[in-house]
């Protein structure tokens, strides 16, 4: 998960056009007073929302600090390494790439966006090294990216904070459904990657046997 607020290049255009379209459309439809109020009230709402988020977010990062210090996060990382080996059969288990990918996956699951992104970037770097810095993505890179963006997450901390700010009667009611939905998207991602891997492998095999016949 990329939670970094800055450096999203598309956002500069998106944001700019949102303001321009909103003001022009509001002027044409006679809603310009509402547009002015909307801008000011939304800015105020953002600050109130952040006060709720201060609580919920700090609660979660506090718990994660305990999990980090007690070695729980390290244990989780070790527990998923067989799964990682199955997903990335061509990456040597002791290679740095495997270590960074595992850290990235665990950080994503626990909602530690700020830890996930640096590990993910380092993983891509190590994978590039394994791929001899080819311009075409390796199978491991494709698999890693697809699984990364399928967004496996245990507890959607942000959404819970937003829901409680906007008066939900049960802000955490969506936790289990969100886990199921994210599992569905991740399982679909894994199946897709396995199919592509197998297809790639059998294509290579046929090519090899054809050249073998000729040679």
């Amino acid at each position: 998960m990329v939670t970094n607020c800055c450096g999203e290049p598309m956002l500069n255009y998106l944001w700019g056009f949102m303001i321009i379209i909103g003001v022009i459309y509001g002027a044409f439809t006679g809603n310009i007073q509402a547009v002015a109020d909307g801008a000011i009230n939304s800015a105020k709402d953002a600050v109130t929302l952040c006060i709720t988020m201060l609580g919920v977010m700090s609660l979660w990062t506090g718990l994660m600090e305990i999990a980090e210090k007690s070695g729980l996060i390290k244990t989780c990382t070790e527990k998923i390494s067989p799964v990682m080996r199955w997903l990335f059969p061509y990456v040597p288990p002791q290679h740095d790439a495997m270590k960074h990918m595992t850290t990235n996956v665990i950080a994503n699951i626990l909602g530690l966006g700020w830890a996930a992104t640096p590990a993910g970037l380092r993983a891509m770097n190590s994978l590039a090294q394994l791929n001899d810095y080819d311009k075409t993505a390796s199978n491991a890179m494709c698999t890693f990216l697809v699984i990364n963006v399928s967004s496996l997450q245990l507890i959607p901390v942000n959404i819970i904070a937003y829901r409680s700010q906007y008066g939900s009667t049960n802000p955490t009611a969506v936790v289990a459904p969100a886990i199921i939905a994210t599992l569905v998207s991740t399982i679909v991602a894994v199946i897709f990657c396995r199919i592509m891997l197998r297809r790639d492998y059998s294509a290579k095999k046929t090519r090899r046997s054809e050249s073998g016949v000729r040679g």
């Binding site: 607020c5 800055c6 944001w15 949102m18 303001i19 379209i21 909103g22 003001v23 459309y25 509001g26 439809t29 809603n31 509402a34 547009v35 109020d37 909307g38 801008a39 009230n41 939304s42 800015a43 709402d45 953002a46 600050v47 929302l49 952040c50 988020m53 201060l54 977010m57 700090s58 609660l59 979660w60 990062t61 506090g62 700020w114």
Partner: peptide, 27 residues
């Protein structure tokens, strides 16, 4: 956690403002 949230306050103000304008305009 406090630091993370404080660092996203400006982002949230900017985006909620933009969406607020789009909503109020009827777009």
């Amino acid at each position: 956690g406090m630091k993370t949230v404080v660092s996203i306050v400006p982002t949230l103000i900017g985006l909620m403002m933009a969406v607020g304008i789009l909503r109020a305009s009827g777009f």
